[in-house]
Amino acid sequence: MTTVSSAEPTRRDFLYIATGAVGAIGAAATLVPLLAQMNPDASTVAAGAPVDIDLAPIAEGQIVKVFWRSKPIFIFHRTKKEIDEAKNVDVNSLPDPESDAERTKPGHEQWLVVIGICTHLGCIPLAHQGEYGGWFCPCHGSQYDTAGRIRKGPAPRNLALPPYTFLSDTKIRIGEESAKTA
Protein backbone atom coordinates (compact mmCIF):
# COMPACT_ATOMS: atom_id res chain seq x y z
CA MET A 1 0.00 0.00 0.00
CA THR A 2 1.91 2.92 1.30
CA THR A 3 5.48 3.23 0.26
CA VAL A 4 6.75 5.16 3.19
CA SER A 5 10.50 4.96 2.91
CA SER A 6 12.04 3.24 5.85
CA ALA A 7 15.59 2.80 6.95
CA GLU A 8 15.03 -0.86 7.79
CA PRO A 9 12.73 -2.33 5.19
CA THR A 10 13.79 -5.89 5.94
CA ARG A 11 12.80 -5.73 9.57
CA ARG A 12 9.44 -4.28 8.70
CA ASP A 13 8.85 -6.85 5.99
CA PHE A 14 9.80 -9.64 8.36
CA LEU A 15 7.25 -8.46 10.90
CA TYR A 16 4.50 -8.32 8.29
CA ILE A 17 5.36 -11.73 6.90
CA ALA A 18 5.61 -13.30 10.36
CA THR A 19 2.25 -11.85 11.41
CA GLY A 20 0.60 -12.99 8.20
CA ALA A 21 2.10 -16.47 8.48
CA VAL A 22 1.07 -16.96 12.10
CA GLY A 23 -2.42 -15.71 11.27
CA ALA A 24 -2.65 -18.12 8.33
CA ILE A 25 -1.59 -21.04 10.54
CA GLY A 26 -4.36 -20.17 13.00
CA ALA A 27 -6.95 -19.92 10.24
CA ALA A 28 -5.87 -23.30 8.90
CA ALA A 29 -5.98 -24.87 12.38
CA THR A 30 -9.51 -23.51 12.85
CA LEU A 31 -10.59 -25.48 9.80
CA VAL A 32 -9.58 -28.79 11.42
CA PRO A 33 -12.53 -29.07 13.86
CA LEU A 34 -14.91 -27.54 11.33
CA LEU A 35 -14.06 -30.24 8.79
CA ALA A 36 -13.51 -33.13 11.23
CA GLN A 37 -17.00 -32.73 12.67
CA MET A 38 -18.48 -34.09 9.44
CA ASN A 39 -16.68 -37.42 9.80
CA PRO A 40 -18.62 -40.30 11.44
CA ASP A 41 -19.01 -39.61 15.14
CA ALA A 42 -17.89 -41.92 17.94
CA SER A 43 -21.25 -43.68 18.24
CA THR A 44 -21.34 -44.40 14.50
CA VAL A 45 -17.78 -45.73 14.60
CA ALA A 46 -18.62 -47.92 17.59
CA ALA A 47 -21.75 -49.23 15.88
CA GLY A 48 -19.53 -50.21 12.94
CA ALA A 49 -17.78 -52.83 15.04
CA PRO A 50 -17.56 -56.39 13.61
CA VAL A 51 -20.75 -58.49 13.68
CA ASP A 52 -21.01 -62.24 14.13
CA ILE A 53 -23.36 -64.16 11.84
CA ASP A 54 -24.60 -67.68 12.42
CA LEU A 55 -24.57 -69.53 9.07
CA ALA A 56 -26.43 -72.65 10.28
CA PRO A 57 -29.93 -71.47 9.35
CA ILE A 58 -28.94 -70.60 5.76
CA ALA A 59 -30.07 -73.41 3.44
CA GLU A 60 -28.14 -74.47 0.38
CA GLY A 61 -28.92 -72.24 -2.56
CA GLN A 62 -30.17 -69.46 -0.27
CA ILE A 63 -28.88 -65.90 -0.22
CA VAL A 64 -29.41 -63.84 2.95
CA LYS A 65 -28.85 -60.17 3.39
CA VAL A 66 -27.33 -58.84 6.62
CA PHE A 67 -26.11 -55.38 7.48
CA TRP A 68 -22.67 -54.28 8.56
CA ARG A 69 -21.75 -50.59 8.75
CA SER A 70 -25.10 -49.79 7.14
CA LYS A 71 -24.07 -51.73 4.06
CA PRO A 72 -26.00 -54.82 2.83
CA ILE A 73 -23.85 -57.95 2.92
CA PHE A 74 -24.97 -60.91 0.81
CA ILE A 75 -24.20 -64.33 2.27
CA PHE A 76 -24.68 -66.94 -0.47
CA HIS A 77 -24.76 -70.63 0.44
CA ARG A 78 -23.86 -72.00 -2.98
CA THR A 79 -24.87 -75.38 -4.37
CA LYS A 80 -22.35 -77.69 -5.96
CA LYS A 81 -23.65 -76.67 -9.38
CA GLU A 82 -23.25 -72.97 -8.62
CA ILE A 83 -19.70 -73.47 -7.36
CA ASP A 84 -18.81 -75.38 -10.51
CA GLU A 85 -20.31 -72.67 -12.68
CA ALA A 86 -18.18 -70.11 -10.92
CA LYS A 87 -15.06 -72.20 -11.27
CA ASN A 88 -15.50 -73.23 -14.91
CA VAL A 89 -15.04 -69.77 -16.34
CA ASP A 90 -12.06 -68.55 -18.27
CA VAL A 91 -10.88 -65.95 -15.80
CA ASN A 92 -9.08 -63.93 -18.46
CA SER A 93 -12.30 -63.43 -20.41
CA LEU A 94 -13.88 -61.57 -17.51
CA PRO A 95 -14.15 -57.77 -17.33
CA ASP A 96 -12.58 -57.87 -13.86
CA PRO A 97 -10.53 -61.08 -13.83
CA GLU A 98 -10.65 -62.88 -10.48
CA SER A 99 -10.79 -66.62 -9.83
CA ASP A 100 -13.44 -68.13 -7.62
CA ALA A 101 -10.73 -69.12 -5.13
CA GLU A 102 -9.73 -65.49 -4.74
CA ARG A 103 -13.29 -64.63 -3.77
CA THR A 104 -13.91 -67.30 -1.15
CA LYS A 105 -12.09 -68.66 1.89
CA PRO A 106 -10.22 -71.96 1.47
CA GLY A 107 -12.20 -74.87 2.89
CA HIS A 108 -15.41 -72.82 2.81
CA GLU A 109 -15.99 -72.65 -0.96
CA GLN A 110 -19.75 -73.05 -0.52
CA TRP A 111 -19.91 -69.63 1.15
CA LEU A 112 -19.71 -66.45 -0.86
CA VAL A 113 -19.76 -63.25 1.18
CA VAL A 114 -19.94 -60.01 -0.81
CA ILE A 115 -20.96 -56.43 -0.22
CA GLY A 116 -24.34 -56.12 -1.92
CA ILE A 117 -23.73 -52.81 -3.59
CA CYS A 118 -23.53 -52.62 -7.38
CA THR A 119 -20.12 -51.27 -8.35
CA HIS A 120 -21.75 -49.10 -10.99
CA LEU A 121 -23.66 -46.50 -8.98
CA GLY A 122 -24.51 -48.08 -5.67
CA CYS A 123 -27.89 -49.79 -6.12
CA ILE A 124 -28.60 -53.13 -4.46
CA PRO A 125 -28.68 -55.95 -7.07
CA LEU A 126 -31.47 -58.55 -6.99
CA ALA A 127 -30.47 -62.09 -6.01
CA HIS A 128 -30.93 -65.14 -8.26
CA GLN A 129 -31.69 -63.05 -11.27
CA GLY A 130 -30.02 -62.41 -14.60
CA GLU A 131 -28.30 -64.71 -17.05
CA TYR A 132 -25.48 -65.84 -14.77
CA GLY A 133 -27.37 -67.16 -11.75
CA GLY A 134 -26.01 -64.51 -9.45
CA TRP A 135 -27.36 -60.98 -9.26
CA PHE A 136 -29.03 -58.52 -11.54
CA CYS A 137 -28.98 -54.82 -10.84
CA PRO A 138 -32.35 -53.24 -11.69
CA CYS A 139 -30.90 -49.74 -12.00
CA HIS A 140 -28.75 -50.11 -15.09
CA GLY A 141 -28.78 -53.82 -15.92
CA SER A 142 -25.44 -55.01 -14.55
CA GLN A 143 -25.26 -58.80 -14.17
CA TYR A 144 -23.15 -60.74 -11.70
CA ASP A 145 -22.38 -64.47 -11.61
CA THR A 146 -22.44 -66.95 -8.73
CA ALA A 147 -19.07 -65.63 -7.55
CA GLY A 148 -20.39 -62.05 -7.56
CA ARG A 149 -18.26 -61.16 -10.58
CA ILE A 150 -19.42 -58.63 -13.13
CA ARG A 151 -20.27 -60.35 -16.41
CA LYS A 152 -22.39 -57.91 -18.34
CA GLY A 153 -23.55 -54.32 -18.07
CA PRO A 154 -22.00 -51.00 -17.11
CA ALA A 155 -20.53 -51.93 -13.70
CA PRO A 156 -16.72 -51.81 -13.84
CA ARG A 157 -15.79 -54.20 -11.03
CA ASN A 158 -16.87 -57.35 -9.23
CA LEU A 159 -18.99 -57.03 -6.09
CA ALA A 160 -16.58 -56.06 -3.33
CA LEU A 161 -15.61 -58.48 -0.59
CA PRO A 162 -16.00 -57.31 3.01
CA PRO A 163 -13.33 -58.22 5.54
CA TYR A 164 -14.56 -61.35 7.32
CA THR A 165 -13.30 -64.44 9.03
CA PHE A 166 -14.65 -67.88 9.87
CA LEU A 167 -14.87 -68.33 13.63
CA SER A 168 -16.10 -71.90 13.06
CA ASP A 169 -17.65 -73.77 10.15
CA THR A 170 -21.01 -72.21 10.85
CA LYS A 171 -20.07 -68.80 12.17
CA ILE A 172 -18.43 -65.82 10.51
CA ARG A 173 -17.38 -62.45 11.83
CA ILE A 174 -17.85 -59.64 9.34
CA GLY A 175 -15.55 -56.66 9.80
CA GLU A 176 -12.43 -58.54 10.82
CA GLU A 177 -10.04 -60.12 8.31
CA SER A 178 -8.75 -63.53 9.31
CA ALA A 179 -5.09 -63.58 10.29
CA LYS A 180 -4.19 -66.94 8.70
CA THR A 181 -6.84 -69.57 9.08
CA ALA A 182 -5.49 -72.70 10.73
Binding site: R12, L15, Y16, A18, T19, V22, G23, G26, A29
Partner: peptide, 15 residues
Protein backbone atom coordinates in the same frame (compact mmCIF):
# COMPACT_ATOMS: atom_id res chain seq x y z
CA UNK B 1 -1.13 -19.01 20.06
CA UNK B 2 -3.53 -16.09 20.52
CA UNK B 3 -1.12 -14.25 22.80
CA UNK B 4 1.71 -14.64 20.27
CA UNK B 5 -0.53 -13.49 17.44
CA UNK B 6 -1.83 -10.56 19.46
CA UNK B 7 1.77 -9.54 20.20
CA UNK B 8 2.74 -9.70 16.54
CA UNK B 9 -0.36 -7.76 15.55
CA UNK B 10 0.37 -5.14 18.17
CA UNK B 11 3.80 -4.44 16.71
CA UNK B 12 2.47 -4.60 13.16
CA UNK B 13 -0.21 -2.11 14.13
CA UNK B 14 2.36 0.17 15.71
CA UNK B 15 4.45 0.02 12.59
Amino acid sequence: YLIVLAGLLYFTKKR
